[in-house]
Simulated scan of single mutants.
Amino acid sequence: MSDDQRPGELPGLDLERLAVWLADTRPGLVAGPLRGRLIAGGKSNLTYEISDGESAWILRRPPLGHVLATAHDMAREYRVITALADNGVPVPATYALCQDDDIVGAPFYVMERIVGTPYRTAAELVPLGADRTRVIATGLIDTLAALHTVDPGAVGLADFGRPDGFLERQVRRWKKQLDASYSRDLPAAVELHDLLAKNLPAQSATGIVHGDYRLDNVLVDAEDRVAAVIDWEMATLGDPLTDIGLLLVYQRMSDTAMAGVSDVALAPGYPAESEVLERYSMRTGRDVSEIGFYIALASFKLAVISEGIHFRHIHGQTVGPGFEHMGEGVEPLLSAGLSALRTP
């Protein structure tokens, strides 16, 4: 994290205007002048910790500059977190949503600050030992399974997405997002998109999809339990197997030059891919026999996201460190996706 910053010093966040808005929207929540800091690690929506000196909260807003259509919808993120409270999936409490760009320059929401660790590297897990690492990773899988067994209608999310034709739209959507962020020729992207479109499997039963589920998008408490699932910006209704496919792609990336995202699967005690799939399938009852397609789709999605971040970075529209090498992972991800579709 960066050091605390005073009003006028924090990119993407006007603390004085925010304080006035919170005083009107949630009287009594804030007890004094706000300070804040940008939480490092996020490559998309910006996450800040804000504090009045006594209490602290988390604020989320879209990135600065180039924002793709349909992405970075604060209202959707806020809605799904709010709906899942007390429904078997650990999430922060939500306090306020603002869709007025005049306050901080973009829509945003404020939620509870949960104390916990978003483990990003094997080096962070190794000192815990293999047994604790296995407990943490198992909790990660079980939490995803719990999410995928929530009935969307029972928590007020029946209209949160359009599950019919979800996989076809995902393939089309990520191609459209890539077209909006092209800065170079990527022939493998064209090939992978075409193969995905031609090899759509029958969809798994509809569920709530997180959209970017991995170990550093959950907070783990001192007892090695998942205290909160965070970063819900891609959440929707659809085929939940897209989440497990993405989790496995992140796991595979641990063994490659793309491990800059996360290499947690290299830590002793982290379950093998087959164990992840077996435990997930046992907990959810879902058929994972077509996992190759979901791994390929996840690879395509991550390649598109990386290319979008690369686009913003070369145009000077990113905040914080760690963006300069994002473009290097695009072609390896596309190759991994092609390999997953071609493997029997």
Rank of each mutant, 00 (worst) to 15 (best):
residue 248 L to G: 10
residue 260 G to K: 04
residue 297 L to V: 07
residue 186 L to V: 03
residue 297 L to T: 09
residue 291 I to H: 06
residue 259 A to R: 15
residue 294 Y to E: 05
residue 314 I to L: 14
residue 260 G to M: 02
residue 278 E to L: 12
residue 272 A to P: 00
residue 298 A to N: 08
residue 253 M to E: 08
residue 294 Y to D: 04
residue 242 T to C: 15
residue 223 E to H: 14
residue 236 T to E: 02
residue 259 A to C: 13
residue 271 P to G: 05
residue 199 N to V: 01
residue 230 I to T: 12
residue 294 Y to I: 07
residue 319 V to D: 06
residue 247 L to M: 15
residue 234 M to C: 01
residue 317 Q to K: 02
residue 305 I to C: 04
residue 190 V to P: 00
residue 264 V to C: 14
residue 295 I to Y: 00
residue 222 A to L: 07
residue 299 S to I: 03
residue 182 Y to M: 15
residue 232 W to D: 05
residue 244 I to L: 13
residue 184 R to Q: 13
residue 192 L to Y: 01
residue 308 G to L: 07
residue 299 S to L: 03
residue 222 A to Q: 12
residue 304 V to L: 09
residue 196 L to N: 10
residue 286 R to N: 04
residue 309 I to S: 03
residue 311 F to L: 12
residue 247 L to I: 10
residue 233 E to H: 03
residue 295 I to E: 15
residue 256 T to Y: 05
residue 257 A to N: 12
residue 269 G to K: 09
residue 234 M to N: 07
residue 196 L to F: 03
residue 285 G to E: 07
residue 304 V to D: 02
residue 264 V to Q: 01
residue 198 K to H: 14
residue 319 V to P: 00
residue 207 G to T: 08
residue 317 Q to L: 03
residue 198 K to T: 14
residue 215 L to M: 15
residue 309 I to F: 01
residue 313 H to C: 03
residue 279 R to N: 11
residue 221 D to H: 08
residue 285 G to D: 06
residue 292 G to C: 06
residue 271 P to D: 01
residue 252 R to E: 14
residue 184 R to T: 11
residue 216 D to T: 08
residue 225 R to V: 04
residue 251 Q to I: 12
residue 315 H to I: 04
residue 184 R to F: 00
residue 309 I to K: 04
residue 309 I to C: 02
residue 228 A to E: 02
residue 290 E to G: 13
residue 262 S to M: 08
residue 228 A to D: 01
residue 291 I to V: 11
residue 240 P to Y: 06
residue 297 L to Y: 07
residue 303 A to T: 01
residue 242 T to M: 11
residue 231 D to Q: 05
residue 214 R to I: 08
residue 267 A to L: 09
residue 287 D to M: 05
residue 265 A to C: 01
residue 225 R to W: 03
residue 208 I to F: 01
residue 281 S to Q: 09
residue 315 H to L: 07
residue 249 V to F: 02
residue 191 E to V: 14
residue 191 E to W: 00
residue 233 E to P: 06
residue 235 A to E: 06
residue 304 V to M: 07
residue 211 G to S: 09
residue 247 L to C: 11
residue 269 G to V: 07
residue 181 S to C: 15
residue 237 L to K: 11
residue 193 H to A: 13
residue 222 A to W: 00
residue 186 L to I: 02
residue 184 R to S: 11
residue 238 G to L: 07
residue 292 G to A: 15
residue 280 Y to S: 08
residue 260 G to W: 03
residue 192 L to K: 05
residue 241 L to V: 06
residue 208 I to H: 01
residue 299 S to H: 00
residue 312 R to W: 04
residue 319 V to M: 03
residue 296 A to T: 08
residue 306 S to N: 08
